[in-house]
Amino acid sequence: MSLLGTLVNGIAIISGSFLGLFWTAIPDRIKDTILQAMALAVTILGIGMGLKSEQFLIVIASLAVGGALGEWWNLEEKLNSVGKWLETKVGKQDKGSVATGFVTATLVFVVGAMSIVGALDSGLRQEHDVLYTKALIDGFCAILFTSALGIGVMFSAIPVVLYQGAITLLATQIDRFVPQELMDALIVEITGTGGIMIVAIGLNLLGVAKIRVANLLPGLLIAGILVFIVEKWDSILAFSQGIL
């Protein structure tokens, strides 16, 4: 079953969030320290991902073009609107805005190499080990995030399942059209681009900046397009040099 890893990931987030709701006895100062620790870990994770890029100009261009598109489409506001709609359904909470928990957790759980690589493994090879590992990590993070940000974190399971599920289903067919070398390059540069977004999430959690990370999300698609263009251009140059 291609979607098994994705479904397990979604269940882990929901389960972790459910457990996090019962951490009410923990003092706020401890929750704040936990959130800061998570923010630091997320920032370091993002830096590591960003440094994996082999063509950093692609990352820069992807963030610039993707950010412009995201601002044009106003993705951050639309994602927040979904969170606010959820808040009207579940009611106000003491721990903070449902929208904040939903948006923060969605970005952390969706923007990352494991989402892409794991979903591709599930679709291409029916192997779910990467997504099982991600499920354990996300489940633990969901406990901590929910204890600090509230029930909005639980609803992040929905976009995670939709995003990873779409990649998985696409991957069941993509190997017919995309050679392995191009696929590897796509993963590297999308990971690098996503890493910068992860750093931005960490800075937001630390209160260092207020970056509209959701508006950068189109950069992931732009990175894939640019890698494809560069690879094709290199092939054309190599072919022309061979003729000359």
Rank of each mutant, 00 (worst) to 15 (best):
A214S: 10
A25G: 07
G195W: 00
I151G: 11
V153F: 04
T193I: 09
I143K: 00
L86C: 05
L216K: 05
V82E: 03
D121I: 03
G219M: 13
V130K: 06
I151H: 02
V178D: 02
V178I: 02
G16Y: 11
K78P: 11
I151N: 10
S122C: 06
L79P: 03
S17T: 08
G16R: 02
S240I: 10
Q173Y: 08
N74Q: 08
Q173G: 09
A99E: 04
L40I: 15
M114N: 06
L216S: 12
F239T: 06
D234Q: 15
A135T: 13
T133A: 15
A12R: 07
L149E: 08
I211E: 07
V178A: 00
L205M: 15
I143S: 03
F239Q: 10
F140K: 05
G112S: 05
I47H: 10
Q180R: 07
I229N: 03
A64M: 08
E77I: 11
I187Y: 07
Y132W: 13
A157C: 12
K84F: 03
L226Y: 02
D234H: 14
A25K: 04
N204K: 04
L203R: 05
F18M: 09
A223L: 02
E87Q: 07
A64F: 04
L57E: 15
L21T: 15
V82F: 02
G67I: 11
A171R: 01
L21K: 05
F140R: 09
L144R: 00
L79N: 01
E71H: 01
F145E: 03
I58C: 10
F145C: 03
L86Q: 03
L79Y: 11
L237C: 03
Q241T: 14
A61P: 00
G112H: 07
P179I: 08
L220W: 07
L21F: 02
G207Y: 09
D121A: 08
W85M: 15
G139W: 10
L144K: 01
K210E: 02
A238Q: 12
I14G: 09
S147A: 13
L4V: 14
I14R: 00
Y132P: 00
I34G: 02
L206Q: 09
G70H: 02
L136G: 10
G66N: 09
G224M: 04
E189L: 03
L237E: 15
E181K: 00
T6V: 15
G194C: 01
V65R: 05
A209R: 15
D175C: 06
L170R: 11
V111W: 06
G195S: 07
L182M: 06
N80Q: 05
L244V: 14
Q173E: 13
V8T: 01
V213M: 11
M114H: 09
A238W: 05
I14D: 13
L40M: 14
L205C: 06
L136V: 07
A157K: 14
V59S: 13
I13Y: 11
V111P: 04
A99D: 08
I44P: 00
E127W: 01
A41V: 13
M38I: 12
M49P: 01
T104N: 01
G139N: 04
E76I: 06
D175S: 13
I187N: 13
E181A: 11
E77D: 14
L216V: 14
D138T: 12
V227E: 06
L63I: 01
D32R: 08
F177Y: 09
Q241R: 13
I174V: 14
W23Y: 14
I14M: 07
V103L: 03
G224D: 10
V65I: 12
I167F: 00
H128K: 10
A135N: 05
S17G: 14
G242A: 12
